[in-house]
Design a protein around this nucleic acid. Structure first.
Length: 114
DNA sequence: CCATTGACTCGGA
DNA sequence: GTCCGAGCCAATG
C-alpha cells in the first residue's frame, strides 16, 4: 500500500466532527496534489473494509458528490447530525466547516469575510 | 500485464 | 452561472 493511501485514510480518520474536507485537499495533505480521485477510490475500497468517516468528505465546492441517492442522504444526514449545516442541494459551507489540519491557531481569518 | 473505473479538479467556452 | 473536456494516479478485474 502506498503512503498516499495510508495518509489519505489517516487524514480522513483525523477529520473532527462538525468539519469536512475536500478530496483535493486530502490528496494534497496526503502528498499528492492530483490524488483527489484516488481519495475517492480509497473511500470505496477502504470504507468497505474499514469504517471510515467518508461522510466528512465532500468535493472542492463543499458539495456532496456521491452518486447514489441513499448515500447522498446518508452523508447529508450524518453531517447534519454532527452539526454541519448542509444545504438542501447537499452543499456545505466550506468557509465554516472546512477542516484545515495545517492551520495554526489563527482563527481571525478564514470565516471573517462574508 | 492491460484495460477500466473512480465519492475529483481545473480550465476554457 | 452552466456545460464540456482533459488530466491524473492508484486500485481492481
Amino acid at each position: 500500500m502506498h503512503q498516499f493511501t495510508e495518509k489519505t485514510i489517516k487524514l480522513i480518520q483525523g477529520i473532527p466532527e462538525g468539519k469536512v474536507m475536500s478530496y483535493g485537499q486530502i490528496a494534497r495533505y496526503a502528498g499528492n496534489v492530483r490524488g483527489a480521485r484516488q481519495v475517492a477510490r480509497v473511500l470505496h475500497s477502504m470504507s468497505r473494509k474499514h469504517r471510515l468517516p467518508w461522510h466528512r468528505v465532500v468535493n472542492a465546492r463543499g458539495e456532496i458528490s456521491v452518486k447514489g441517492e441513499e448515500l447522498f442522504q446518508t452523508q447529508k444526514l450524518s453531517l447534519e447530525l454532527e452539526g454541519v449545516e448542509v444545504d438542501s442541494g447537499g452543499t456545505v459551507n466550506l468557509d465554516k466547516f472546512l477542516y484545515e489540519p495545517e492551520v495554526d491557531g489563527d482563527g481571525s481569518a478564514g470565516q471573517s469575510s462574508v
